[in-house]
């Protein structure tokens, strides 16, 4: 397997006012790699992945996504957003559009695909997350788990090369978490490059190539799952693991 670099973050810093939310982040993601990011709330893990598609702006350092550096230039931001799909904690489906339109909107307006083709593609991915029978409903008519799967399908319709997941199961009822995780596992097995912020340690064990533990804006620990769970180095990681496991 070629180790093509997809994302490279070097010495990235970000502040919210006085608060140093990202403190010297260095991270390299190669093609097909699955990275799980965990850590206590406020540790900067969401901010980190939101910097990758510029929902947050980093203030120092360099982020290169697929050879394009993220700058204030709108064209580079748009190019990167086209390659990077994102799934949110709160799903953020467009409530005024049907599920099918949610999925075909960006392919039509950003990728300039013909309408028919975009809809076919949308149906294909809706089928893949097993909600093609809900395609003509509105988001409010779906359960949380179905909405999140629709959101994943929406992101996949852009055929991104990288997928970001920002706590995708945190807003779900327990019995719906599995259906979403199953979709994500399937995606991982298909070779997608994924960065997942989650507290689902079962998922991390099963899928992750690397688990990153963050605290106070820093990457404290970065290891493969076996090492991460069996011999974490830092005290903070140990405390965190003892609390959630």
């Amino acid at each position: 397997m070629t180790s093509e670099t997809m994302i490279e973050m070097s010495s990235v810093h970000k502040w919210f006012g006085e608060l140093h939310v990202l403190n010297d982040i260095n991270l390299k993601v190669i093609k097909g790699e699955k990275i799980v990011i965990c850590g206590p709330s406020g540790s900067g893990k969401s901010t980190l992945i939101r910097c990758i598609n510029r929902l947050e702006e980093h203030q120092r350092g360099e982020i290169v996504v697929e050879g394009t550096e993220l700058t204030n230039d709108n064209r580079s931001v748009e190019k990167i957003r086209g390659e990077v799909g994102m799934v949110f904690q709160q799903f953020n489906l467009f409530p005024h559009l049907s599920i099918l339109d949610n999925c075909s909107l960006a392919p039509i307006w950003v990728r300039k695909l013909p309408k028919v083709e975009a809809r076919e593609k949308a149906m294909k991915y809706l089928k893949r997350v097993q909600i093609d029978d809900q395609a003509h409903k509105y988001p409010a008519q779906l359960s949380g788990g179905q909405q999140q799967r629709a959101a994943i399908a929406r992101a996949l319709c852009m055929e991104p090369r990288i997928m970001l997941f920002d706590e995708p199961t945190s807003a779900l009822d327990p019995e719906m978490i599995k259906e979403v995780l199953d979709v994500m596992v399937g995606l991982a097995e298909g070779g997608m490059t994924m960065l997942v912020v989650t507290h689902e340690m079962g998922f991390a064990k099963e899928v992750a190539d690397k688990i990153i533990f963050m605290d106070e804006g820093q990457i404290v620990e970065s290891k493969n799952p076996t090492d991460f769970f069996s011999n974490p180095e830092s005290e903070r990681t140990k405390t965190f693991l003892s609390q959630i496991l």
């Binding site: 929902l55 957003r81 953020n92 909107l105 960006a106 950003v110 992101a155």
Partner: peptide
């Protein structure tokens, strides 16, 4: 979240406004 989802999908400001934000 509606703004963020539109931006993450790659919509430009005007498309985001016209297709997502203003209709709602």
């Amino acid at each position: 979240g509606q703004y963020e989802a539109s931006q993450a999908a790659g919509l430009t400001y005007w498309k985001m406004m016209a297709l997502i934000i203003l209709p709602q």
